[in-house]
Design a protein around this nucleic acid. Sequence first.
DNA 1: ATAAACCTTTACGTAACGTTAATGTCAATA
DNA 2: TATTGACATTAACGTTACGTAAAGGTTTAT
Lengths: 252, 252
Amino acid sequence: MEYTVNQLAQISGVSTRALRYYHQIGLLTPKRISSTGYRIYGTREVDRLQQILFYKEMGMSLEDIGKTLNSPDFNRLKALKEHKERLMEKRMQLDMLIENVKKTIESAEGRMDMSDKEKFYGFKKQLLEQNEKEYGKETRERYGEKTVEESNRKFMSMSEEDFNKMQAVEKEMIQAIQDGMAEKDPGGEAGQRAARLHKEWLGFYWPSYSKEAHAGLARMYTEDERFKAYYDKIRPGAAEFLRDAILIFTGK
Amino acid sequence: MEYTVNQLAQISGVSTRALRYYHQIGLLTPKRISSTGYRIYGTREVDRLQQILFYKEMGMSLEDIGKTLNSPDFNRLKALKEHKERLMEKRMQLDMLIENVKKTIESAEGRMDMSDKEKFYGFKKQLLEQNEKEYGKETRERYGEKTVEESNRKFMSMSEEDFNKMQAVEKEMIQAIQDGMAEKDPGGEAGQRAARLHKEWLGFYWPSYSKEAHAGLARMYTEDERFKAYYDKIRPGAAEFLRDAILIFTGK
DNA sequence: ATAAACCTTTACGTAACGTTAATGTCAATA
DNA sequence: TATTGACATTAACGTTACGTAAAGGTTTAT
């Protein structure tokens, strides 16, 4: 069977413009061109178009699809897996975004006068974390821990002194969490000490404090896998413990 | 404080090009232009930039950000909520994509020589199902069962004869599942008959057969809610029964 | 013959900048 | 003071996957 652009468009469901574009970028070349310049597609082209649509549906870029289809030794399974990884990353970023928006909404609802400046601080922190996640490991390996932390500190325009203080507070807080978990009571002395230290630690990131925002962050610690993993490194269940302690502390 | 582009770029973290672009589209206009044409930003501009970055981080388009920041009576909370909804929708789409890719990988792992053609068949079927789910009910109501099935058949480029055969096989298989469930033995005669019929039925979708892929599909029947629901309509537990029967049949 | 339907290429528009390129300005130094 | 290096400007193309005209040939049917 032979088809013109329109016919192929009909049976495949893509637009004629798309077909011409695929021709233009060399993704799908017609079987032949008629004497009058018409594009003529054959069965093989139909098959290839089907494949193209398949990978497209998977969310691949046309460039990647072309590479995939053109290299005979291309490992399709590997490509799919890599692609899946990319999609998952995208989803994680989206999740973070949603979390952020959610939290902002919560804060705004709880306390409408939260200044944009504060929002900006939170935003900076986010940026830092994301950056860290993307390049942190590599950078650490290449330049060592110090450089990374220095850059982080610089990024947050924090003084060396503040940075050290912050780390000291965090360390103290971790100790308090451990003590509190031994007591098994987030409302107990150690648990509440942890919450207080967490508030203090927060002060390095946020220019002002509110119970609502604090409680919101606490909830996030158990809902966001990334944060949960960080705290649970201390000891499994640490994220939940800290959350409970903070919720009691803030009375929310 | 007054800043030049570079200085503002430094403290904000955005590129100078971005700042010029923001100026160009009227999103962030400098406080004034120096006699020599330099852009000079003031404190108010810094604040506005922070807000811009904030909403940008939320994933908003620059156009939307402009609208948000420029309308004094704009309900920021409402805007955020709407924006959240959009993000959630995006995520759902992503989730569907990921599911799709995952399943393809699973199938492919079951039998590495699975050709793209087969994948495409599966894909077509998926598309069909999705389409069916979205518009099926409505279409059925409007045009009746026949039209829908005819269109499906056409979509899968199956002959009328094949289509009828396929339906007959499916019907037989359903009967076998019912018999097998009465026997309560997926390894029994009826159960294995169901598995064999399922293999035959599969032949209409897949141009070639492998035990691995068959077993993979069987597992999917219980993991994918959509499929599970379809088979459990026969009788609750039918999906699991069919899975077990197929796993025994394929010896996987 | 003429119109309707179908084909072609060319080219601008999209979002948010990155990236040259060509050129003018400012601050510090030889 | 002249030069140099850092910093500023505008202009304009490139990116992705086409949508959407516009201007004009080709095929088919009447």
